[in-house]
Amino acid sequence: METQNLNVIVEEIVKELRNKTSFIIEASARHVHLDQETVEALFGDGHELTPVKPLSQPGQFVSKERVTVLGPNGQLENVAVLGPVRKQSQVEVSLTDARTLGILAPIRESGDLDQTPGITLISRGGRINLDSGVIVAQRHIHMTPEDAHLFGVANGDIVSVKTPGSRGLIFENVVIRVSKKFATRMHVDFDEANACNLGKGMRGTIYKK
């Protein structure tokens, strides 16, 4: 019995140490963020997004609303709309998605939409052409201020992240984003998730050469 208790204590210590030196990696599927004007153009005057599932970042959610993203050469159907509404509409796709659509989407941080390509969004009730807003999201880590201090990083820092497993790799050019509003998570798109064989609960570590 004493040996079993000791093993439990050791496992808890190892788990705590692991959590203090690594962070969960999540795959972010293609999705759109909409401003209120675009919400109403697609779903009707006065329409508000309907939450159906909370996301790991506090206050953010997957909504019931879905759209088709139409490009010059192809389209992506049943694309999730994430809430809450934003000041400017934004479409986040992978590089593979961008090729399907037939556009050259730049790799950008969320919200950096200057000189980005436009796209057409279609719903059952409407259609709208966006002049800009399509990006491939730069891989990033949301961090609380406490975790940023723990990891020795600051908002805007660029780091490398190592992943474990049979297809473990090192992600370069990962931007740190620090806010009291965040929960600590690394986000990659599906191209990147497939490259490292991302599974539920996989944790990454900051890699220093």
Rank of each mutant, 00 (worst) to 15 (best):
I25V: 14
A27E: 14
S28N: 11
S28D: 13
A29T: 02
A29Q: 05
H31W: 12
H31T: 09
V32G: 13
H33F: 14
L34W: 11
D35F: 00
D35K: 07
Q36D: 14
Q36P: 15
E37F: 01
E37M: 07
V39K: 02
V39I: 06
V39G: 10
L42T: 09
F43E: 09
G44A: 05
G44S: 03
D45W: 10
D45T: 08
G46M: 03
H47A: 12
E48F: 01
T50A: 03
T50E: 05
T50F: 00
T50S: 09
P51C: 12
V52L: 14
V52P: 10
V52E: 04
P54M: 05
L55D: 01
S56L: 10
S56W: 06
Q57C: 02
P58I: 00
P58H: 00
G59C: 00
G59T: 00
Q60M: 01
F61R: 01
V62E: 08
V62L: 06
S63G: 12
S63M: 06
R66H: 14
R66P: 11
R66N: 13
R66M: 14
T68C: 10
T68A: 08
V69S: 12
V69E: 13
V69Q: 05
L70I: 15
L70D: 06
L70R: 09
G71E: 04
G71P: 11
P72D: 07
Q75G: 02
Q75A: 09
Q75S: 14
Q75H: 12
Q75D: 15
Q75T: 00
